[in-house]
Amino acid sequence: KEFRPGDKVVLPPYGVGVVAGIAQRSVSGVSRAYYQVDFPGSRSKAYVPVEAPHSVGLRKAL
């Protein structure tokens, strides 16, 4: 896996977040693995496909 729990990442347009782990989510009846990204200071979460994280701009924070 490219990202691990605890990694600081950037996800446009949300900003800097932390990978909380990998979650299985069902979309249109198909279960897939997603990185769960939490954003400190907020209750917001984002789910990014493990198979294509760069397709939505997910990258490691510098």
Results as ranks from 00 to 15, higher is better:
Y47Q: 02
A20N: 07
S44C: 15
K1W: 15
F3C: 15
Q24L: 14
R4F: 10
R32I: 08
I22V: 07
R4M: 15
Y14H: 07
G17R: 01
Y35S: 01
A61H: 11
Y47H: 02
Y34L: 02
P13L: 08
L58R: 03
A33Q: 11
E2C: 14
K1A: 14
F3G: 01
V19T: 00
S42Q: 10
S31A: 09
G15L: 03
A61P: 05
I22Y: 06
S44Q: 15
R4H: 11
D38Q: 12
L62Q: 11
V10T: 07
P5K: 14
E2S: 12
K45R: 14
A23W: 13
V19A: 00
Y47L: 06
A52Y: 09
A61F: 15
G15A: 02
P12K: 06
V37Q: 00
P40K: 08
E51T: 08
R25S: 05
P12M: 09
R43N: 14
A23G: 05
G6L: 03
G6F: 03
G29Y: 02
Q24R: 11
P13T: 06
G17C: 03
P49W: 08
V10R: 04
K8N: 06
G17A: 02
V37E: 01
L11K: 01
K8Q: 09
K8W: 15
K1T: 15
F3D: 00
Q24H: 12
R25K: 09
A33P: 08
R32M: 09
V37H: 00
G41T: 09
S31D: 05
V19D: 01
H54W: 12
F39K: 01
K8M: 13
F3A: 00
P40C: 14
V30K: 09
G17W: 02
S26E: 12
V19S: 02
P53Q: 06
L11N: 00
L58E: 10
R43Y: 12
K45P: 14
S42A: 09
P13E: 05
Q24V: 13
Y35L: 05
V30D: 05
K60P: 13
K1S: 13
P5S: 08
V16C: 15
H54K: 06
S55D: 09
S26Q: 10
V9S: 02
V48A: 06
Y47T: 01
L62F: 12
K60V: 08
A23P: 02
L58D: 03
V9T: 03
E51Q: 07
S55T: 11
K60C: 13
L62M: 12
Y47E: 03
G41M: 10
V19M: 04
K45D: 02
R25M: 13
A46E: 05
S44W: 15
P49K: 03
P40M: 09
I22Q: 02
A20C: 12
E51G: 08
V18T: 08
A33R: 12
P5L: 13
E51H: 07
A61D: 07
P5I: 15
E2M: 13
V19P: 00
P5N: 06
V9D: 00
Y35F: 07
A33I: 08
K45T: 14
K8F: 13
S31M: 14
G21D: 04
R59G: 04
G21H: 06
D7A: 04
L62N: 12
D7I: 03
G6M: 03
F3T: 01
S31W: 15
P13Y: 10
P5R: 13
G6I: 01
K1I: 14
G29C: 04
A23I: 15
R59T: 09
P53K: 04
S55G: 07
P53Y: 09
S26C: 14
A23M: 15
E2I: 12
L58I: 09
E51A: 08
V37R: 01
V27G: 04
P40V: 10
A61S: 07
Q36L: 12
L11A: 02
V16Y: 15
V18S: 06
P40R: 08
G57V: 05
Q24I: 15
R43K: 12
P40Y: 13
G15R: 04
P5Q: 10
G21M: 10
P53R: 06
R4C: 13
D7R: 03
Q36H: 06
A46S: 05
V10F: 14
L62E: 13
V48Q: 01
P49L: 12
Y47C: 05
P49S: 09
I22G: 00
G21Q: 07
A20V: 14
A20T: 13
A20I: 13
Y35A: 01
P5H: 06
D38G: 05
K8Y: 13
F3V: 02
G57I: 05
F3H: 05
Y34W: 05
E2D: 10
P13W: 10
P12L: 08
A33C: 12
G17V: 02
Q36E: 13
A52G: 08
A52T: 07
L11P: 04
Y35T: 01
S28L: 13
P53I: 10
G41K: 09
K45Y: 12
V10N: 05
V16F: 14
A61T: 06
L62K: 09
G57R: 06
G15T: 02
R25C: 15
G6K: 02
G29V: 01
A20K: 10
P49F: 05
S26Y: 13
Y34H: 03
V10E: 07
S55P: 05
F39A: 01
A52S: 11
A52K: 09
G41I: 08
V30G: 06
I22L: 06
A20H: 08
R32G: 13
V18C: 09
L62S: 12
R43W: 11
V27R: 06
V48C: 06
V10Y: 15
R25Y: 12
R4L: 11
I22S: 09
Y14R: 04
R59K: 08
G17S: 01
S28W: 09
V19L: 08
K45W: 09
L62D: 13
D38F: 14
G21C: 13
D7T: 09
Q24S: 09
I22A: 01
D38W: 15
Q36I: 15
R4A: 10
H54M: 08
K8P: 06
L11T: 01
A33Y: 14
S26M: 14
V9R: 00
L11H: 03
V56N: 10
S55E: 11
K1H: 15
V56A: 14
V56P: 04
A46F: 10
V56S: 13
V27I: 11
V10W: 14
Y47W: 11
V27D: 08
K1L: 15
D7F: 03
I22M: 05
L58H: 02
V50D: 00
G15Y: 03
G57C: 11
R4S: 10
E2L: 13
P13F: 10
L58T: 03
D38P: 00
K45S: 15
